[in-house]
């Protein structure tokens, strides 16, 4: 569904991505993993079109989108869910959701989808008249995901859905992402929480210093010693040892 070939991108003269190749098949969940400052968010911006490509090509659904503006890519069904802190705090929950369907002309179906999103996240229905700035972290995360769904996407890109959330809430959000994937939306999830993301996804890419360092089936990655070493932390006994010294 999404194909990225030899993408170089960055800000001004600063090149951050140095030749990224990636593929997301239709259906299922792909995880893009890496620590802070490795280029995850930059890659996401390059895919959604917020920053221009310096080199390479992005193809979505068989169409090259490299030259398209962000709002044009979004209209093709390539929808990026923003980070949770990027809801519009001065708008109500419902206004945020309606904004997600901004490009759609099919009024009836949009209304039906709004109800679907409310059924999916009942807490949003309870809070629909509230300003989104008054929601809790988990609720805002549900709001931005719901807002993405309102665009009736073919593919949803999630930017760190677990950021700054309590582990229990993360579990709930990830269960919801899984449900969305089951309903037929392809998902690319960008995460720092490597363990959780690899449990959720079927396939994973690990990015470091602007290049793909490693890729493979999620099951294999999670048991790979190199991945364990750099992302999942040492074993429990190692941690205990370190504490005693």
């Amino acid at each position: 569904m999404l194909e990225i070939k030899g993408v170089h991108a960055g800000y001004g003269n600063l090149k951050i991505l140095r030749g990224i190749d990636m593929k997301v098949q239709t259906g299922g969940i792909v995880a893009l993993l890496g620590g802070n400052g490795t280029g995850k968010s930059t890659l996401l911006k390059a895919i959604s079109g917020l920053i221009p490509l310096m080199e390479g090509e992005v193809t979505f659904d068989g169409v090259s989108v490299s030259k398209l503006k962000p709002h044009e890519r979004m209209r093709l069904g390539l929808v990026q869910v923003t980070q949770a802190k990027e809801a519009y705090p001065a708008m109500t929950v419902e206004e945020n959701l309606v904004l997600g369907a901004y490009t759609r002309k099919d009024r009836e179906a949009t209304k039906a989808d709004l109800q679907k999103v409310y059924d999916f996240f009942p807490v949003l229905r309870e809070r629909r008249k509230q300003l989104s700035g008054t929601l809790s972290g988990g609720e805002v995360q549900m709001l931005v995901i719901g807002r993405g769904l309102m665009a009736s996407p073919k593919m949803l890109m999630l930017d760190e859905p677990s950021a700054a959330l309590a582990p229990k809430v993360v579990l709930e959000i990830f269960a919801n992402i899984n449900r969305i994937a089951k309903s037929g939306v392809t998902i690319l999830v960008v995460e720092q929480n490597v363990r959780m993301a690899l449990i959720l996804a079927q396939y994973g890419y690990i990015i470091r210093d602007g290049v793909i360092m490693m890729q493979g089936e999620a099951k294999e990655l999670i048991s790979d010693p190199a991945v364990k070493e750099s992302f999942l932390g040492g074993s429990v006994s190692d941690t205990t040892k370190a504490l005693r010294n």
Partner: peptide
């Protein structure tokens, strides 16, 4: 964000 909502 407005761009990502598909707004021109």
């Amino acid at each position: 964000i407005a761009y990502l909502m598909g707004i021109n």
